[in-house]
C-alpha cells in the first residue's frame, strides 16, 4: 500500500469547503474505521456509527466555512474528537451512562471543540428546510432549482411550464417573499 498522503491537510479542508467528492471519499476511507470502532465499543450499532460519521463531516463542513476557523490539531484527531463528542452527546440524550468511556485515541476535550455555534447553524438550516417544505409547490421547486441547483431562469421556465423567463422570475420573487415570511415567523 502506498502510504503517502494524496492530499495535504489544507487541500482536504479546501476540498471539504468546495464540496469535492474525492476529498469526502478520502476522509471516509481514512477516518471512518476509527470513528466506527469508538462508537461500537461504546454501545453503538453500525448504523449509528454511520450516522455519527456523517454528522461529523457535516459539523466539520460548517466549522471550516467559518471565517475564524483554525485547525489546532491534526485533522484526523480533530475528526475523531468531533465524532467522539457527538456520540457522547447522543448517549447522554438516550440517557445511557457515559462515565466509563472506552477511549481509543488521543482526542481534543469537548470544551475545546467549541461546537455551539455549529449547533446554531444546523438549527437555522433545519428551520430553512422546514420553511421550504411548508411553502409547497411550485415554489419549493422553483427556489430549489434556482438557489440549490443553480439553473438559469430560462431552464426553470421550460421545466415548470412558464411561458417565459420573466414570468418565472416574478414567480420566483413571490415565492421568496413568502419563504422569508414563513422563515421569520418560526
Amino acid at each position: 500500500m502506498d502510504n503517502r498522503l494524496p492530499f495535504s491537510e489544507e487541500e482536504l479542508l479546501e476540498g471539504l469547503k468546495s464540496n469535492n467528492a474525492m476529498v469526502i471519499a478520502y476522509l471516509y476511507k481514512k477516518n471512518y474505521p476509527s470513528v466506527a470502532n469508538f462508537v461500537r465499543l461504546n454501545g453503538g450499532s453500525d448504523d449509528e456509527a454511520k450516522d455519527i460519521f456523517q454528522e461529523t463531516l457535516v459539523t466539520l463542513f460548517h466549522k471550516v466555512r467559518q471565517e475564524n476557523f483554525i485547525l489546532t490539531a491534526k485533522l484526523n484527531t480533530y475528526i475523531y474528537s468531533v465524532a467522539r463528542n457527538l456520540w457522547l452527546t447522543e448517549l447522554k440524550r438516550k440517557k445511557q451512562k457515559s462515565e466509563d468511556v472506552f477511549e481509543l485515541e488521543e482526542f481534543i476535550p469537548n470544551d475545546e471543540l467549541l461546537l455551539e455555534d455549529v449547533e446554531m447553524t444546523k438549527l437555522k438550516y433545519n428551520r430553512l428546510n422546514w420553511s421550504l417544505e411548508q411553502l409547497g409547490e411550485p415554489c419549493k421547486s422553483i427556489l430549489s432549482y434556482y438557489y440549490f441547483y443553480k439553473w438559469s431562469m430560462q431552464e426553470i421556465a421550460d421545466k415548470m411550464g412558464y411561458t417565459n423567463a420573466d414570468n418565472a422570475k416574478t414567480q420566483k420573487y413571490k415565492c421568496l417573499l413568502r419563504l422569508k415570511k414563513i422563515f421569520q415567523k418560526m
Partner: peptide, 22 residues
C-alpha cells in the same frame, strides 16, 4: 443565508452519495 444553505445542500448530497458507496 439562502446561498449558504444551497452550498450545504450540495455538500449533503455529495456526502450521501459517498457514504452510500462507502
Amino acid at each position: 443565508e439562502l446561498n449558504d444553505f444551497g452550498e450545504f445542500y450540495k455538500f449533503k448530497t455529495t456526502l450521501n452519495k459517498v457514504s452510500e458507496r462507502y
